[in-house]
C-alpha cells in the first residue's frame, strides 16, 4: 500500500518534471524539471530496494551531470532564445490528437482489466546484496571485468573524440 502511494506520487512528479523539460521556455527551468524527474526516479529505485542505484542516480545524474548542464546553460547565456518557428502546419494539433489517442488506448486497456500483461512473472527475485564497496567491487572486477574495462574505454573515446572534434584551431577546412 505504501509502495503504491509512493509510486503514484513519484510517477506524477517524474512526469511533471519531464513535461517541464519540454515545455519550459527558459532552459534553466528545463534543467530544474529534469532534476525533479531524476530525483523522483531515484526514490522509485529506493522503493525497489536498489539503494546503490539510487545513490548513483543522485550523485552522478542529479549531482554531476546536472551541474554540467547548468554550467553549459549559464556559459552560453540564458537569454538566448531558441528559434521556435514550427515548420509543419498544425504540428501541435496533430501531436495532441495522437497523444490523446494513445492515452485513451492505454486507459481503455488498463480499465478493461482482462489484459494479461505478464502472465508468468519471475518468481525468483535476485537477493539484494548489501551495498558495501566490496560487494560491488567483487563482481565488477571478476565476472564483469571485460564489460567494465570496455565501458572505461568507451568513456575515453568520448573524451578524446569530443576534444578532437571541438578543437578547431589551425585546421584547414
Amino acid at each position: 500500500m505504501v509502495e503504491g502511494i509512493l509510486f503514484v506520487l513519484m510517477a506524477v512528479t517524474a512526469l511533471a518534471g519531464a513535461v517541464t523539460v519540454v515545455v519550459a521556455r527558459n532552459p534553466v527551468y528545463s534543467a530544474m524539471g529534469l532534476l525533479g524527474t531524476l530525483f523522483s526516479v531515484a526514490v522509485l529505485y529506493v522503493a525497489q530496494l536498489a539503494h546503490f542505484v539510487a545513490a548513483v542516480q543522485v550523485i552522478v545524474y542529479a549531482g554531476a551531470v546536472m551541474t554540467l548542464f547548468l554550467f553549459v546553460i549559464m556559459f552560453i547565456g540564458v537569454d538566448t532564445s531558441d528559434d521556435r518557428d514550427e515548420r509543419l502546419p498544425m504540428q501541435r494539433f496533430w501531436v495532441g490528437i495522437l497523444a490523446g489517442v494513445i492515452v485513451l488506448l492505454a486507459a481503455g486497456i488498463t480499465l478493461s482489466g482482462n489484459f494479461d500483461w505478464v502472465p508468468a512473472a519471475v518468481e525468483t527475485i535476485p537477493e539484494a546484496t548489501n551495498g558495501t564497496i566490496q560487494a560491488i567491487a567483487e563482481p565488477l572486477f571478476t565476472d564483469w571485468v571485460l564489460a567494465f574495462e570496455a565501458t572505461a574505454l568507451l568513456l575515453t573515446i568520448s573524451a578524446a573524440g569530443a576534444i578532437a572534434l571541438a578543437h578547431f584551431k589551425g585546421q584547414r577546412t
Binding site: I157, S158, A162, Q171, T173
Partner: peptide
C-alpha cells in the same frame, strides 16, 4: 563500442 567512435568520425571533416 563499435558505434560510439563512428558518431565522432562521421563528423571528421569539420569544415
Amino acid at each position: 563500442l563499435t558505434t560510439a567512435p563512428l558518431f565522432l568520425l562521421t563528423g571528421w571533416r569539420k569544415g
